[in-house]
Design a protein around this nucleic acid. Structure first.
Lengths: 188, 188
DNA sequence: CCTACCGATCGGTAGG
DNA sequence: CCTACCGATCGGTAGG
């Protein structure tokens, strides 16, 4: 990927984040990139490529992250901490792309969408393994694994809705708060 | 609101849920309603009215729900249970509208969006009050209230992504699982 | 990276 | 609820 292509991708992600993929036109992207609309096509094949690259490059980061965590032989509590840390880190350092990845993958073409969902399920499965490990090791309560993992992931994913790089919490602090909350709950 | 208008609204919500507000055209809605596109305008003022009505009628349901909970003088744990129950109930019985409400409020016009955000903050504040009550009453740990409420709400909101009316869990069971999870966490 | 332009589709209106 | 139609905008191409 050339530098200019990366620039255009980054500009597009910022616009997609603000207005959504569908409501962002190639003319909007061109304007933000200070070129004529037609000029974009010497760098990219079309609008969907921008969405596709965003969704799949993010999916790859998440899958590599969870694979790394599950390759290391610590107990489930430590693995969970690492997974939460990694997840929050990826979101925080790729915030625009993360929002697009979460919100607009539905607008991929049918076959690409199917491929995306496979990766998404793969990641969720990696998380479920950690929760199941925790139960097997006697560290976690005997919760409904599917349900608990979904709830955990929802907390992780919602971060993009309020995370602010200039806010009072660093990604590491967010990850720690989240980990503690998921582990011990509200009850005194 | 006439019966036919409600029908059109319901059809629109179903299409918005599948393809998003922006990617759904008036022609799509007309086709699904078995009328010509121009005929829709004898029932509604325009496309945005469909989104507006959806977002604000859902917001109203949520705000009424939390107000009702906070008006009843039980302890924070019971209030939280009621709030979770109510929230899940509203999502489950208005699933299409709930998805649109969550995903597409960003496409409201600027002033309506501002009004919407006020209502949204009002609801979040209602939830924060419950969490704060719990801490004050010595029932909950001294968590970061803002953070905990956001995490709680994320779990509640994410339900729409996987809830299935024909699935194995009823809304009441989902609410109970969620409440238990948020209260006690994973750790044994 | 530009000028010039394409066919398709958009939300919406006039008038009945 | 329909026919007929509007101006605007869409993603993208031809050719340089």
């Amino acid at each position: 990927m050339t530098e200019r292509k990366l620039e255009i991708l980054s500009i597009a992600q910022s616009l997609f984040k603000d207005n959504g993929y569908t409501a962002t036109s190639m003319r909007d992207i061109a304007k933000a990139a200070n070129v004529e609309p037609a000029s974009l096509y010497s760098h990219i094949n079309g609008k969907e490529e921008l969405l596709d690259t965003t969704c799949f490059s993010m999916a790859e980061k998440f899958i590599n992250g969870i694979a790394e965590v599950n390759d290391i032989y610590f107990d489930a509590a430590q693995k969970l901490k690492m997974a939460v840390d990694t997840h929050v880190g990826i979101l925080a350092t790729n915030l625009n792309a993360a929002i697009v990845f979460q919100r607009d993958w539905r607008h991929l073409s049918d076959d690409r969408k199917a491929a995306f969902i496979v990766l998404r399920n793969q990641y969720e499965e990696g998380m479920r393994v950690i929760v199941q490990n925790g139960i097997d090791e006697g560290l976690f309560n005997e919760v409904d694994v599917k349900f608990a993992t979904l709830t955990l992931l929802s907390s992780l994913n919602w971060i993009v809705e309020w995370y602010d790089a200039e806010g009072r919490l660093t990604p590491a602090e967010i990850a720690e708060n989240l980990y503690n909350f998921v582990l011990t709950g509200l009850k005194k």
